[in-house]
């Protein structure tokens, strides 16, 4: 870590990192505590949307200041993760609907 960071900046970065981690943790706990698959599918997107966004923002601010030039490659990770996770979740949801219908679970049918 760099030694001579201004106080207000380290507070800002700390707040962003802790809040981001808290939101991600809430999502992960949701994965454990919610009772069925279709509720649990909402949990991972907390980490990829706001939780991850805040941590990556903190990282971008920190490296931009310590290197004295804008560092925005965090933006690439954010864009990639926010776009790809919904794709995975949609595929997973369709697979799950398909399997539940085959086994006669209580899910909405196709085209009725």
């Amino acid at each position: 870590m760099i030694e001579d960071l201004p106080l207000w900046l380290s507070i800002l970065i700390s707040a962003l990192v802790v809040l981001g981690a808290l939101i991600t943790l809430a999502g992960c706990f949701g994965l454990v505590r919610l009772e069925n698959f279709y509720l649990r599918i909402h949990a991972p997107t907390m980490g990829t949307s706001m939780g991850g966004g805040l941590i990556l923002l903190a990282s971008a601010i920190y490296f931009s200041l310590t290197n004295e030039r804008p560092i925005i490659h965090e933006l690439a990770i954010f864009a990639f993760v926010t776009i790809t996770t919904p794709v995975t979740l949609m595929l997973l949801a369709r697979a799950s609907l398909f399997r539940d219908r085959v086994e006669g679970e209580d899910v909405p049918g196709r085209g009725e």
Binding site: H42, A43, S49, L89, A93, L97
Partner: peptide, 15 residues
């Protein structure tokens, strides 16, 4: 639209 709805934690686009 599908990506926006799924990326929002409160809703998920299924099919």
């Amino acid at each position: 639209l599908a990506i926006i709805i799924t990326a929002t934690p409160g809703s998920a686009w299924l099919e």
